[in-house]
Amino acid sequence: MEQFITHWLGSTPAFAIPLALASMGLVLCERAGVLNMGAEGYMSLGAMTAAVLTLTLGNPAIGILCAVLAGATLALVFGFAVVVMRCEQILAGLATMAVGLGIAGVVGRSYVHKSFEGLQPLDLPWLDQLPLVGQLLFHQDILVYLTVLIGFALWFLLEHTRAGLKIRAVGEDPASADVAGVQVQVQQLLAITASGALCGLAGAYLSVASSSIWVDNMVAGRGWIALALVVFARWEPLKALAGAFLFGAIEALLPRLQAIGIPAPIYLMNMLPYLFTIAVLLVAACSGSKKGMEPAALGQPYVRQDRH
């Protein structure tokens, strides 16, 4: 039993980290008032970029860095569409998602199923020797630690810095923020780009850290679960982090149960994360008796001259 739990929890980050990075990126983006449906595409692009570059150059660090840049660039295209050209956010998001999936599929075609040496776990000195929790908590790759760090950094940014205050104000009431001297479009572009970078990193984790291989459609709906996690987390980065680990633990349970020979129908088990998503959204909706924490201007393009 102890071994089951250790294995289960030990494999949780592999599932949790991509969700955590992507949903925290989306939290940032939505707090700036921009609804970004493109996460799935940015993650795919990131996963492919990281895998292909690691395969050809043999250096996962460069692969990950370029995945971050690729995600950020694609998000910037989305940002240009919705912030500068004021396109419909949902449509523009879906379009860039399709672009990301497409590029990943085409460019990555000749690299499919070629395994490579990915990111290795990093043992934190002394800490990994701790009984029970040592191997669990401190025998992980660097991105796991980085993710937790990013979560706290985002929380601090949003709640305790002027930069975060500006982003929140833009998401709540862009007209008032504008009058207060905040550059609404710049804030939104920054938040969008950062969210794309985090989604790219999430994708890179999938290919370079957790599986060391690139296969087409590797992201498999995680971008959408991340989008739901944002609502579950009530637009708070730390709750998104916690929620991602909760989801990751549930996802990680499936292979473990199969490994110890519990006969669970595979299709039902594969549905579990999505069923859990729906359940969580329902619970969040019911428990939100006070007016939700949703940014008031989420999804509304801001046009200065038009308002009265």
């Binding site: 002027r162 205050l165 500006k166 929140r168 104000a169 709540e172 009431d173 008032s176 923020a177 009058v179 207060a180 001297g181 905040v182 008031a296």
Partner: peptide, 13 residues
């Protein structure tokens, strides 16, 4: 901005 306090609204500007 409704969700911010008067202090935060001043900080913003």
């Amino acid at each position: 901005v409704d969700r911010l306090t008067p202090t935060e609204n001043l900080l913003l500007a």
